[in-house]
Design a protein around this nucleic acid. Structure first.
Lengths: 233, 233
DNA sequence: TCCTGACGAGTAATGCATTATTTAATCCCC
DNA sequence: GGGGATTAAATAATGCATTACTCGTCAGGA
């Protein structure tokens, strides 16, 4: 085997690595995720890769076709609007509960998460315009923290799943000036402000705008052909 | 091995069996699901049991504690109200989309599913008052069919997950006359009627009432002690 | 007596070997 | 030469062996 004294399992770590690799586009939509290739890449046995993939299936980041293998799901721009609406509704409900129930510590942690997000560089320094993995993580952490005090694990998990799905659309959208250059910091600041001032209605509205604006930009930009499933592996 | 010419995998079948066994209460909340015991019970290797359990983890029917094993999640009556609200919101949105987009065939299939449901006996003939597995399946199939034309796979899956969660609460509620004797058939008929007459607002309202009434009855009845996690295996 | 830390049983996690299924390539037969 | 069956290669699914973790138990020392 390959481990010693850590706490959680190899499978968990591989799952997280795979998740980030899919979100960052290392494996692209439609691509077949072969067990042998992945176990070589992640330097572990096919068993743990299989478990990691199976787990990601539950989060809709991987699709399993019985007896055919695992695949990265392809995206459909037609679904994006409904997808976004579902996300908005879920988060509106979530933030409402979270604001009702959040403690002072929650407020503090939300500020902390926001601070981290603000200080994490958004774009890679290589000029590719690609969003960095660190920023993506901080962004999801910020939004997750806002909902964390809602008290409903299903909802937290749902929100994470929908966030990942949205990241996929964002990642495979045609890069445009508007998408790349958008000033997202103000939106986050306002959301944080509404939440920690316990204004659920305003927080919900701001979240909806925040998500919907991104959605509109993605829909205007369209998806890269690699995301539609007709690409080569 | 144990198979030859079927289509989908052993793992899928074991997962479905496990799912129904958990919903029906064969394994109860808090119980540890040991790989060795389960592979003996389902007559297969621990590998496929593990995969089945991992998959069910994604549907929140099983919980995995790293290096500790798999467990049936315990229930908390406090969460039920929020849980129900999330479900209502998701289904209201889903039924709205489904009604906008459903074809004539969808209408027909909804009627078919409803017919099956109506003709499937609800309670076991042994007088235990327990809901039959067949009725449970038909019930979920009916509701799933209503949403099936919404065009958003995430939402369909979410709805199925929430339905399973609700079944758990229903299963582990203290049996009361009101819960056992409720006339649920009229509600289904009305929902079907609203949906196939393309009245989204009414369908949504009826669904909300349908779910919320069950919830209220469960909250009034309370949960059996076995569901709370302090029971022996 | 109570804590601490080492041992050991039980079992979860991982790795690897084997079997089954799919997919494509080849070969007949028309 | 073309279409459908047959065989072969690739790889997904399953089974089993091994390793490593957790937790309970017990011995030794304060």
């Amino acid at each position: 085997m390959a481990r010693r004294g850590d706490s959680d399992t190899l499978s968990t770590k591989v799952r997280e690595r795979l998740r980030l690799d899919i979100l960052s586009g290392l494996w692209h939509p439609g691509e077949k995720l072969q067990l042998a290739a992945l176990s070589a890449h992640y330097e572990t046995s096919s068993t743990v890769v299989r478990e990691a993939l199976t787990r990601l299936t539950g989060a809709r980041l991987v699709e399993l076709k019985p007896n055919r293998g695992f695949f990265v799901p392809t995206l459909s721009i037609d679904e994006l609007r409904d997808f976004n609406e579902l996300r908005c509704r879920a988060e509106e409900f979530g933030i409402q509960l979270a604001i009702e129930r959040g403690s002072l510590q929650w407020e503090a942690e939300a500020h902390a998460a926001h601070h981290t997000l603000e200080r994490t560089p958004r774009h890679a320094s290589d000029g590719s315009g690609r969003v960095t993995e660190e920023w993506l993580t901080a962004h999801e952490a910020f939004h997750a923290k806002l909902l964390s005090s809602c008290g409903l694990p299903v909802l937290i998990e749902l929100s994470a799943t929908l966030a990942d799905g949205n990241s996929m659309y964002r990642r495979w959208a045609v890069p445009t000036k508007e998408l790349l250059g958008r000033n997202i910091e103000d939106e986050h600041r306002e959301i944080l402000d509404a939440a920690t001032n316990r204004d659920a209605a305003r927080a919900g509205k701001l979240l909806r705008q925040h998500y919907s604006l991104t959605m509109e930009l993605i829909m205007k930009a369209g998806l890269l052909p690699e995301a539609l499933g007709d690409s080569a592996a």
